[in-house]
Structures are given as structure tokens and as C-alpha cells.
């Protein structure tokens, strides 16, 4: 996605990891003080990017009044595909199902930021509409906006985040 344009807003930080550093999972564990458990790679990518972006913005924590908005073309593709295969086999597994759900990613992103607030997973074919709608009615604490993609069909994984506030 191109850098989001929201008139009257400024970018506090823009973080993109593509390619990801080889030790990104270790880096995430260092940053949040634990290794994520029972979450899928898509959620881990979101956690990593969100945390790095906040730190790049020079913030120790995301303000309570900020909004988190995350978008993705395919979401937790791997977990969803695995969950469907488990359904075919008559053995649906609870953690695979949970990992396929975007809401679980939002929960883990909030948790790794030690933050409780307005988080949502939204999509639109026109990616510029997402920051615009996220900004409507947003508090002065602004937005944390993420775009997260798993590796798929040779496309490398990507986690790209922006910390935006009204100017």
C-alpha cells in the first residue's frame, strides 16, 4: 500500500519489514518479553510490525484513545487452509480455527501493546479509503494502521505499519 494520505494528519512513524529479518521472531520475543503461544504466523507478523512501529514513533505505549486498523488481502491464509483440511478429515482443531480469525490477531496485537481500545479489521479494494474512514471520528491520539500479509505463492511475507496523528 502506498503511504496513506489523510489531509491534516502527520506520520509519526512508518515501519515496513520486507524482507523480514531472519531473527524477527526472536526480535519480537525480546520486544514483548515473551514468546507468543498458540498464535499463527499472520498474527505474529502483525504483532511484530505493530510493536516496531510504536517504538519507531518513540512511544512507550499506544495511547488508550488511539484506533488500530488492520487490513490484509488474504489474512490468516495458512491457518484457514489448514482448518478446512481438518474439517475435510473430520478433525477440526481449536487452535487452528482460532488462528484463522482476524479478531484473534487484533486481540494479540492489543495484548502485545498492553493496550485496550478500538481495533478493527477492515478491507476495501481502494486502499486509500481505509485510512480516510479510520480517521473519521478518531480521537487526537490518532491511528495505528497496519497491512499484514503472510507468505503466499512465492510472495514474501510483509508487515507494514503507520502511526498517524492529527497535525
Amino acid at each position: 500500500m502506498n503511504v496513506p494520505v489523510i489531509h491534516g494528519w502527520r506520520t509519526l512513524a512508518h515501519f515496513v519489514a520486507q524482507p523480514l529479518p531472519e531473527d524477527w521472531r526472536d526480535d519480537l520475543a525480546r520486544r514483548i518479553g515473551r514468546r507468543p503461544r498458540r498464535v499463527g504466523v499472520w498474527t505474529e507478523l502483525a504483532m511484530y510490525g505493530a510493536r516496531c512501529c510504536i517504538e519507531a514513533a518513540g512511544e512507550s505505549a499506544l495511547p488508550a484513545g488511539a484506533r488500530v486498523r488492520v487490513a490484509s488481502r488474504r489474512g490468516a491464509w495458512g491457518a484457514t487452509h489448514a482448518g478446512l483440511a481438518q474439517l475435510d478429515a473430520g478433525l477440526p482443531m481449536p487452535f487452528t480455527f482460532m488462528q484463522s480469525q482476524p479478531a484473534l490477531m487484533l486481540a494479540e496485537v492489543g495484548r502485545c501493546l498492553d493496550w485496550q481500545g478500538d481495533a478493527s479489521f477492515m478491507l476495501c479494494r481502494d486502499p486509500q479509503r481505509l485510512p480516510a474512514i479510520a480517521a473519521l471520528g478518531a480521537a487526537p491520539a490518532g491511528l495505528l494502521l497496519g497491512l499484514v500479509e503472510e507468505e503466499h505463492n512465492g510472495e514474501p511475507p510483509r508487515t507494514e505499519w503507520w502511526r498517524l496523528t492529527p497535525a
Binding site: G75, S120, M122
Partner: peptide
């Protein structure tokens, strides 16, 4: 899963010949 998560909303919009911007919201 050959397409994307927006495909469903596009199918809904197509069913009603919707011409405006189409958003997906999926937070369980």
C-alpha cells in the same frame, strides 16, 4: 482461498448491483 478476503463483500455488492465503495468488516 485462491482470491482474497474482499471477494465475499464484492459478491454481496454484485448481488445488488452496488456501485459505491465496498468495505469488509470482520471482527468476529
Amino acid at each position: 482461498l485462491g482470491g482474497g478476503l474482499q471477494d465475499f463483500a464484492d459478491a454481496v455488492a454484485g448481488a445488488i448491483d452496488w456501485q459505491g465503495p465496498v468495505f469488509t468488516v470482520s471482527t468476529a
